[in-house]
Design a protein around this nucleic acid. Structure first.
Lengths: 338, 338
DNA sequence: ATGAAAGCGCTAACAT
DNA sequence: ATGTTAGCGCTTTCAT
C-alpha cells in the first residue's frame, strides 16, 4: 500500500494535478463539484500531502526552529508550550532541539535545523559564539532570541534583563531588612542567565557595602535535591545568615526543605529567594520569595512575532520586547514557620 | 545574499554537482584533493544543505515524529529529553507536537506530522480513536506507542502497565497497614493512564473488602496547588483517613503541603502516595510513597527502537518492552513528621 | 573517480 | 475555472 500522491488523487478525480492541488488547498476558484470529487478521491485514497515537495516547490516551509538549553526543569517546557500555543492556527509548525547548555551542540543543532529551511528561528539567550551567530545571520531568516535581554541581539529579542532581575531582588531584600546574605547556585558557567542574576544581585549588595558572606556553587545542573544539599553546607558554614539567594526556584525549594528539616524558621530566621515564580514555589507550605518570569508568555510572544514577520515580510519595528518580572513573597519578619 | 546551493558549491570547486554531493556526504570514493576543494568551497559559501531536497530525492527524512499530551509537568519533557538523547548520533531528528490531551487535536497533529514523511512516529498511549489509528497504519512507517501497556498496540509498544502500577501500590499500602483510603485526582477523563491506575488501585481495595472512603476529583489539570486544595477538601470531609492515593506526584506533593499546613502528621497519621517518582518527590522534607516511572528511559528506548527499525528494515521481534515501576517511600508507621 | 540524465511530489507562473 | 510547463535542490541510477 504505497503512499498515494497528488497525481493519483487527480487521476482518480478525473482532473489535472493543479486542479486537485487547488481544490485540496482551497486556494483560488475551483467549482463546487470539482472540489467535491477531488476531496472524495483524496479521502478514498487516504491521501496525505507531502510537505517536503510542497515546501521545496513553494520555497517556504512554515517551520519555526526552536533551540532550548534544557528540558530538565519545567521552565523551557513551558516556553515550548507557549510557542506551540502562539503558533496555533497559523499553519506554522515548531521544531525543537535541546542543546544541554552546550555551545558546540547548540551550533550543530542550529546547523541541522537550518538545513530544514525554517521560516524563522527562535534561540535561547544572547550569548552564542561568533560562528553560531554568523551561521544564523547567513540563514537570512528572522532570528528571535528569547529569555535574555542583556547583550546584543542579532535581530529580534524577547525576554527580560536577568541582571536587573538580580538587582531588583537584592534591593527588595535589603528593603525588607535582610543584611547577612548567602548564595546557592549551580552550573553558572553554563547557565549564563543565572550568572547574570547573581552579578546583578552582587552589584546592589556592593552599593550597600554588603556582599555574599557565604556561597555554595556546584557544577551539576540545578535540582531540588542539590539545592537542599548546598543549603545544608551553607548553613553549616555560616549559621547566622538571614537570607539566601538561589540560582532558581528549584534550588530555592530545596533550600526551603533543608531549612524545614533543620528546624530553621523561614522566613523568620532566613528568607529564601529564588527565581522563576514556579507554580511549585507558590504552592509551598512556607512562603519563599521569587521573581515571576513570564515563560509561557515569552514563548507565545516570540511565536507571534515569528508569524508576523514571516506573514508577508511585514516590517516589524519593535525589535525588542521586554518583560519585567514581578517580585513576590517578600514581607516583614513576622509570619515565621519552621 | 541568497542561500547557496550544491550546484554553486560544485561550480566554485570546479566539479559536477554529483561529485560535490559525494564529497560533502563522504559516501563512495572521491579523491582527497577533490574533497578538499569541495569542502573549502562549501565553507567559503557558507553552504548549508537543503534537507527538503535531500529527503524528497532520497525518499527518506530520518525524522521521528513525536506526539505527547502535555508540557505542563516535568514528565513528558523528560520523555522528550530521553528521545532526543536516544536519537543522538543517529542522524535522526525528533519533531515534537503537543496534543493537550485532546484527541481531535492529536489527530490533526499526527496528520500534520505525517505530511513531513517521518521515518517513524512515537505517540503517547494506546487509546487513540479508530480514525487516528487508521491514519497511523496508513503511513506504513513504524508506529511506537509509549508510556502505557494496557491495551492493543498498533505496532510497537514501550511502557508500563498503569493498571498494574495502581494494583501494586494498593497492595503495598495495605501491607503497610493502611485501611482508610481516600483518592485525590484530576482530569481523569483526559489522562487515561491516571484513570487506569485508579481503577487498578480500586480493584485491589475491593478484593480486600475495602474502598475509597472519600474521593476528590477535579476537571482541571494536575498541579501542586490543585493537590493541596483537593486534599484540604478530602480531609475536611473525612478527617480520619489513614492514606491518600493521588493521580500523580504533583498532586501528592500538594497533598503533603496541605497536611503540613494543617499539622497532620505524614506518614504518621496519613500516608501520601503518588505516582512518577519525580526528583521533587524524593527531595521532599517528608517522605511520600510513589512509583518510579522510567520516563527518560522509555523515551530513550523508544528512540533506539525507531533507529533500529528504520536502520535497515531490520526485523524487530520484541514488539513490546515492559517496565515495572519500583515503589518507594513506604515504611511502617513510625517516622512521623507533621 | 567522476559525470549526465532523470525524477522525487509538489506549486508558481503563465496560459486558455 | 482549469490545464501546461518549468523547476524547487537534491540523490539515484547508469555511464564512462
Amino acid at each position: 500500500m504505497r503512499k498515494s500522491t497528488l497525481e493519483e488523487v487527480a487521476a482518480a478525480a478525473g482532473v489535472s494535478k493543479m486542479t486537485a492541488s487547488r481544490a485540496l488547498r482551497g486556494t483560488s476558484d475551483v467549482s463546487k463539484e470539482t472540489r467535491e470529487k477531488v476531496l472524495q478521491a483524496a479521502e478514498r485514497l487516504n491521501y496525505v500531502g507531502n510537505r517536503l515537495a510542497l515546501s521545496l516547490s513553494s520555497q517556504r516551509t512554515n517551520l519555526v526552529a526552536v533551540v532550548v538549553p534544557s528540558m530538565s526543569n519545567i521552565v523551557f517546557p513551558e516556553v515550548l508550550a507557549g510557542i506551540s500555543a502562539g503558533l496555533e492556527g497559523s499553519g506554522m509548525q515548531a521544531v525543537f532541539g535541546i542543546s544541554d547548555y552546550d555551545a558546540a551542540k547548540e551550533r550543530e543543532i542550529i546547523r541541522d535545523m537550518l538545513s530544514w529551511q525554517p521560516s524563522a528561528i527562535i534561540v535561547t539567550g544572547l550569548d552564542q559564539p561568533e560562528d553560531t551567530v554568523r551561521m544564523l545571520k547567513n540563514a537570512t531568516i528572522p532570528i528571535i532570541q528569547i529569555m535574555d535581554l542583556d547583550g546584543e541581539p542579532v535581530d529580534f529579542n524577547v525576554g527580560l534583563s536577568h541582571g536587573k532581575a538580580g538587582e531588583d531582588m537584592a534591593r527588595a531584600l535589603i528593603a525588607a531588612g535582610r543584611r547577612r546574605f548567602g548564595y546557592v547556585g549551580s552550573a553558572l558557567e553554563l547557565d549564563l542567565r543565572a550568572g547574570k542574576r547573581k552579578a546583578g544581585f552582587e552589584r546592589v549588595l556592593g552599593k550597600s557595602g554588603l556582599a555574599f558572606m557565604q556561597s555554595q556553587i556546584d557544577d551539576a545542573f540545578s535540582s531540588v535535591a542539590l539545592g537542599k544539599q548546598l543549603t545544608r553546607a551553607a548553613l553549616a558554614a555560616m549559621p547566622d545568615l538571614d537570607c539566601l539567594y538561589y540560582s532558581n526556584d528549584d534550588m530555592a525549594t530545596g533550600g526551603l526543605f533543608a531549612c524545614m528539616e533543620l528546624g530553621v524558621a523561614v522566613p523568620g530566621k532566613i528568607l529564601i529567594a529564588g527565581f522563576n515564580g514556579l507554580d511549585l514555589a507558590n504552592a509551598l507550605p512556607v512562603r519563599i520569595a521569587t521573581s515571576r518570569s513570564p515563560r509561557h508568555l515569552i514563548g507565545e510572544v516570540a511565536a507571534k512575532l515569528a508569524r508576523d514577520v514571516v506573514a508577508d515580510g511585514k516590517t516589524i519595528d519593535r525589535k525588542r520586547i521586554a518583560f519585567t518580572p514581578e517580585i513576590i513573597g517578600i514581607g516583614p519578619f513576622e509570619n515565621s514557620t519552621g
